[in-house]
Amino acid sequence: MSATAARPRPKIDPINRGFWENARAGILSVQTCDNCRDVHFPGSPVCPRCLSGDQSWTPVSGRGTLLSWVRFHRAYWDGFRAELPYLVCLVGLEEGPLLISNILETDPEKLVIGSPVEAVFETVDEELTLPKFRMRG
């Protein structure tokens, strides 16, 4: 495997740019259709509900529910090797869309599916901030 030293960075394109710009400002956002108000993630070129091309990245509460989690025991990138084993979660936002992220928790016993979680922001460098989650309450 040609693992790279660095961690993978998001491929920023015209569709997802708004999400990553908001994240740098500490705002979690989902794509919202200006026509039918459908909210979804990840972004898409047209609204999957009404096929309108008019869409915006709108802030969400950052609150959600832990839907599932896994723990990686193998590094597919060298940049994650020091973190092994590391946790990845699937969160269902209060507003509806589902997000893959990391959960800031070290004890898997505490990762009870259905528990409330909230977004936090991890600054990687000047250009990239990653939204992550922690257990709430």
């Binding site: 961690r7 993978p8 960075r9 599932s68 989690w69 990686f72 990845v88 990391n102």
Partner: peptide, 22 residues
């Protein structure tokens, strides 16, 4: 396969691991 890679999430196995956990 790739969209979630900034959080270290990748591989077919991980998709099914997430499914199994749920």
């Amino acid at each position: 396969y790739v969209y979630h890679s900034p959080w270290g999430f990748t591989s077919q196995g991980a998709l099914y691991a997430l499914t199994l956990q749920s």
